[in-house]
């Protein structure tokens, strides 16, 4: 398999891998490293790639496992991943302070969710995968995914309502 063929397989979902990694690891740099790591692992095992039924689902599972490993090793070292995604949002900030602020709230709320729910929200609401696909990726059954998703969505809505109504009610 040449590099071009490999890239053709990988390109459609490499952003999804990155976003999933970022959802779990929070920091952009860590997520980039994780994505590279996952892609390199795929590349090194390129001989087996044809055997996988669904390369995308397989990569997502791989990413999930890799991130969990990362998080575990970080916790073991008692190091917290400090995320510092510095960006120059000067113009956007001035225009949409309010919107950005509430969107930022959503990010914070999702970050506070348990890892499992974070994963499911990411896969369902952002990447828009089927329940069956999510169940396969996370090695869970369909109903468990639905229940976790429902819990996550309710939590987000409750917290958002609280912040939204803060100072009013």
């Amino acid at each position: 398999m040449t590099q071009l063929e490999f890239l053709n397989i990988v390109t459609p979902f490499k952003d999804k891998v990155f976003r999933l990694a970022k959802r779990l690891l929070v920091s952009t740099e860590e997520a980039e490293d994780a994505t590279q790591e996952v892609l390199i692992k795929l590349w090194n095992n390129k001989a087996k790639i044809q055997e996988y039924k669904n390369v995308e689902a397989f990569s997502m599972t791989m990413t999930k496992n890799y991130c969990f490993d990362k998080l575990k090793s970080k916790q073991a070292q008692n190091l917290k991943i400090v995320h510092s995604n510095y960006e120059d949002k000067q113009t956007a900030l001035q225009k949409q302070v309010e919107l950005n602020d509430s969107v930022h709230w959503v990010e914070k709320i999702i970050e506070a969710l348990p890892e499992q729910q974070r994963l499911i929200i990411q896969l369902r609401d952002i990447e828009e995968y089927d329940f069956d696909e999510i169940a396969k990726m996370l090695d869970m059954n369909n109903t468990a995914v639905r229940v976790a998703l429902s819990r996550a969505r309710k939590t987000i809505r409750e917290k958002l309502t609280n912040t939204h109504n803060y100072g009013i009610k």
Binding site: L7, V10, K14, D15, V17, F18, R19, K22, E32, T35, Q36, L39, I40, W43, L99, S102, V103, W105, V106, E107, I110, D125, I126, E127, I156, R157, L160, T161, T163, H164, N165
Partner: peptide
């Protein structure tokens, strides 16, 4: 109050992996 949630989801779909693959 739902608005930021869905806006966030849509905005996040656009985030891309920009680093090149070594």
């Amino acid at each position: 109050m739902y608005k930021p949630m869905f806006t966030y989801f849509l905005a996040n779909q656009k985030e891309q992996f920009t680093k090149d693959v070594p």
